[in-house]
Design a protein around this nucleic acid. Structure first.
Lengths: 174, 174
DNA sequence: GAAAATAATTGACCGCGGTCAATATTGCTG
DNA sequence: CAGCAATATTGACCGCGGTCAATTATTTTC
């Protein structure tokens, strides 16, 4: 883990090679794969811990007074995901899991994000015709969509935040 | 292309190997990669043509009278995407492109889907406080989200359609 | 403390995507 | 048709993720 973190710091997520990790950690390749199912599993942990740091900050917020407020407090997460296409791809790939036993850190972080959002939305002055759980699911869906479009050459007219703002105004204050 | 289609028909998208494609097509590996940037580019065409068949059907619909109607007519697309995890991963990966010149068939199909939806929503009896363009973007976002959750072991309580129904009722008829 | 059972580690090896210098084919021109 | 340029094709080769039988280390048992 320490070797992997160092490589990511030095050269970025995309440049990480299992060979380099094991060389740095002074172990054999097989040892790596006895600890991690595959390379994605390592990425899952690496990205998961980054997400959890950002979620720690987010958890401290009691509620959102406005949509602007929500978007502002979501910015660190959005920026982390939209900074690196490779990271976003791993994020999408690991966001769900076919079997309970391989639910990883990213998927867990997404549930945590959902719980945090739902809690905060409970005390926020938005629409009341749907549950805060559903509101939170929608917010997450729109966050992903906004980040995804930020990577698309045909959608360079808006940045992630302003796109999310439009979505969430329509979603939370119809 | 013909070789690739045959392999997919016989063994599925995930089992496709460039080696097998070139062997079947009686050409060398290098020839394949002079026609396609990488394997994903081939997948993009293969999946893109499937999507366009489904969109052809969808285009024939004039409008949606209810959310149920919209969901019902979206079912073929949803089922295609949620049938095969590998296909959905490629779909997500190819859904945007960093540069205009590598916008592929899947990304193009997504724009087509958006245009079709926006056109149909124009004549549909849903909310009028936001543009049909924005409505369509939201519908797409929720479709992706519903499919993504269908692959997640923690969300087996609902099927894709009923999940989408909940989303779209909240989105289009607030 | 020796022997047996269990667990951890190793690195040669494989499969597959992708590259590229060499070679063959085609098209063009006088 | 010869000669040249442009284009298409080839397959040996590379990098990297992942496997697994063999080996070494650790724990358990009597």
């Amino acid at each position: 883990m320490e070797s992997a973190r160092q490589i990511v710091t030095d050269a970025g997520f995309e440049a990480l090679r299992t060979q380099d990790v094991v060389r740095r950690a002074q172990v054999a390749k097989g040892t790596f794969f006895s600890h991690f199912k595959d390379k994605d599993a390592l990425m899952d942990v690496l990205i998961g811990e980054r997400l959890n740091v950002l979620l720690d900050d987010m958890e401290a917020i009691p509620r959102f007074d406005t949509v602007d407020d929500l978007v502002a407090h979501s910015t660190p997460l959005l920026q982390f995901l939209s900074r690196d296409r490779f990271v976003f791809d791993v994020f999408l790939r690991m966001s769900g899991a076919l079997a309970i036993e391989d639910i990883g850190d990213i998927a867990t972080a997404i549930y945590r994000h959902h719980r945090i959002l739902a809690g905060q939305l409970k005390d926020s002055p938005f629409r009341t015709d749907i549950t805060t759980d559903l509101q939170a699911e929608g917010v997450q869906s729109f966050c992903i969509n906004a980040v995804a479009l930020s990577f698309c050459a045909l959608h360079t007219d808006q940045d992630v935040q302003s796109r999310l703002m439009v979505y969430l105004n329509a979603w939370l204050c119809p």
